[in-house]
Design a binder for these strands. Sequence first.
RNA 1: UGGGGUGUGGUGUAAUUGGCAACACGACAGUUUCUGGUUCUGUUAUUAGGGGUUCGAUUCCCUUCACCCCAACCA
Length: 564
Amino acid sequence: MSATDDRPVAANSVRDVVLTDNEQGTFGGRVQTRFPPEPNGYLHIGHAKAITVDFEIAKEFGGVCKLRFDDTNPDTEDTMYVDGIINDLAWLGYPVDTPLFASDYFEQLYEWAELLIIEGKAYVDEQDGETISEQRGGYGNPGVESPFRDRPPEESLGLFRRMRAGEFADGSYVLRAKVDMQSENMQMRDPIMYRIRAADHHRTGDAWKIYPTYDRAHGQSDAIEGVTHSLCTLEFDSHRELYDWFLAQLPLTAPAPRQTEFARLALTHTITSKRKLLKLVEDGHVDGWDDPRMPTLSGLRRRGYPPESIREFCDFIGVSRTNSRNEIELLESFVRTRLNKIALRRMAVLRPLKVVITNWPTGDDGEPIVEEMELVNNPENEADGTRLAKISRELWIEHDDFRADPPPKYYRLTPGREVRLRGAFFVTCTDFETNDAGEVTQVNVTYDPATRGGTAPDGRKVKSTMHWVSADHAVDAQVALYERLFSAEVPGDETGDEFDDLNVESRELLLDCKVEAALSDTSPGQVVQFERLGYFAHDLDTPMLFHRTVGLRDEWANIQKRKG
RNA sequence: UGGGGUGUGGUGUAAUUGGCAACACGACAGUUUCUGGUUCUGUUAUUAGGGGUUCGAUUCCCUUCACCCCAACCA
């Protein structure tokens, strides 16, 4: 997905590595990548970057990218997540027919483990986890070799086979690689290769009693699949040495895959830790994994983010080794740019205020007449055509669009002022009514029949144009407005606890909205622009419930913010 | 504390072998407009600090500092 316009192509440190490999013929020009999620949670915006890096690099060089589930830890994994991930991937634009599973390689991995034992490169340790951890030493401190490190291979082999047979309890034995207890790289201090787990695996059930660790399984799964470029995030940098070590012990015929790291995506006002996302769900701060406030792909989908805009964003931010945090506003700008082109315009009144056109004509039956106005569906795309909307004597307008006592620079309706009702008429406010609390309950206006369609024959101008819906023809709707889920740019930056920055008012549900009739034809998931308000996504399940995807740029809001 | 990684505007990313610091978002000012939207224009940086080599340094050298990652039988 390289840039097609005159924009400079975003940096891509991974591309540079592939380019170099191709020049040097490391893999004979082959490029194969993989996206390797663990099925223990749903995909989020951070994964979207990894996904585009993995898939787009492969595409760019005429290679393939496969989806492989790294399902080596039965305790946390579930088929539900497998399905969810495949689903989200397809929505993002990367459909996968035949996912791969690390668990399919368990037998091969096991055989290679026996090989290492026989060659004296792995041994069974029977110390407890705490002891092993202590012996690992610390940064700058030497490691201590396990008393079982030089156990004869035959003995280790016997023990390892009994581990597999299920003769031992969880945690009683582990298989360790015999690497270097004095290495400056902690990953190399005899890492665990296999541990005993009595758990039920989501695919292999109880067939296995022992499970390989990530470091043990990952690189070798890559090798089994023929991966050339194993792309991952920066925190695995220190694992690369181990990744290479394991592969170097194997009787591989093809060149070993190469691990290359890049910086993970971080966004302001957003968390992407799976554990904390799960906590948001479990503690009821959000409705679920697909709550529109969640940074999950399913949440963004419900929120109305076009998948293309996420891909364009990922392409734009580039790939580098610099730890950074992108502004959520940048992502939103891609959403707006895309939606501006494709979203149909509609009129919706979120906080209705009654307007009466006092000089509106009456028909022969004594009732106010009803007229139909032709409205443009999308000024950015003439092919979207027009629609008809009914108008009569009584209307709803936005509460914010009238002020009895207007502040400076207020262009909207106010006593004595003439404004335009979008695509309809010019109206002038004559007076208004209030309740006991002094709140405005109704605005009375007169209209100028000569301005039908929205232009004055005499060429006079108005300062502002407002959206409206006919009171008799409006449809009821509910609208969810969203603020950032975390109020701080970097959640937890002050206190260390992200949840201290949780915005408890991140959702405002408006139950009594009045929208134009055409909106009842909106399909589930469709995103439209409510004119002057923003982009809104029709809920996937509940009819006439709309989620604000993102607001429009709002100059007036900025003016008020500066004052306030 | 040992090792590894990274530092370019408010933010993110660019800048052949050293040669006018570019693009986008945001902000601000203006323009256009039947959306305070859109469009278009302008403004917004002595490249972490210090020193050195050079006619010339974001780029090469030395040095200081800051931030991130690593001591799970998680991935």
